[in-house]
Simulated scan of single mutants.
Amino acid sequence: MFEKMQRAFWKALTPDLVADEPKVIAQPMAGLPADVVAALGGVDNLKSQQPVALTRVRVELRDVARMDRQALTVAGVSGVMMLDDGVVHLITGLT
């Protein structure tokens, strides 16, 4: 616990010198439902996924053009926020 706090402290002071923690590799079984993964363009289109909050998942896509917003809505995703570099935030609950 102390090591994590110490690492966060130094990361805040020197963001360029402390490496980021590794991202979670996308696994459809361990995170997103299969229909959401399909709407995002399939497993091979996912670089990483990371829960950001109780109602939001951050996903990095290889090709944003393969994402189907309508299929995401049908799959239960209530909102999609597009960010730079293929990063997408999926709003997933408590609408």
Rank of each mutant, 00 (worst) to 15 (best):
D16A: 13
T14E: 04
F9L: 13
A34C: 06
L54M: 15
T95G: 14
L61T: 14
V24S: 10
V59I: 08
L94A: 15
S78E: 10
K23D: 00
A12D: 07
L90M: 04
D84S: 11
A30Q: 15
Q6T: 11
V57N: 09
L61D: 14
T14P: 01
V59C: 06
V80L: 09
D16F: 02
E60W: 07
D20S: 02
K4E: 10
A34F: 07
R66V: 12
Q49M: 12
M29E: 14
T55I: 09
D20Y: 01
N45M: 10
T14L: 05
Q27H: 14
G41C: 12
D16M: 06
V36W: 05
A34K: 10
A12K: 02
L72Y: 12
S78N: 10
L13V: 10
E21Q: 01
R7Y: 00
G86Y: 00
G76C: 00
Q70E: 15
P51G: 08
L40Q: 02
A65G: 11
T73L: 14
D85R: 09
G86V: 10
T95N: 13
T92W: 03
P33Y: 07
L32G: 08
L83W: 10
M29R: 14
V18A: 02
K4F: 06
R69F: 02
G31P: 04
A19E: 07
T92E: 09
T14M: 04
G79H: 09
P33A: 13
R66K: 15
L90Y: 03
P22H: 01
L40K: 04
A53I: 00
V18C: 02
L90H: 02
V24A: 11
L46Y: 08
R58P: 00
V88H: 03
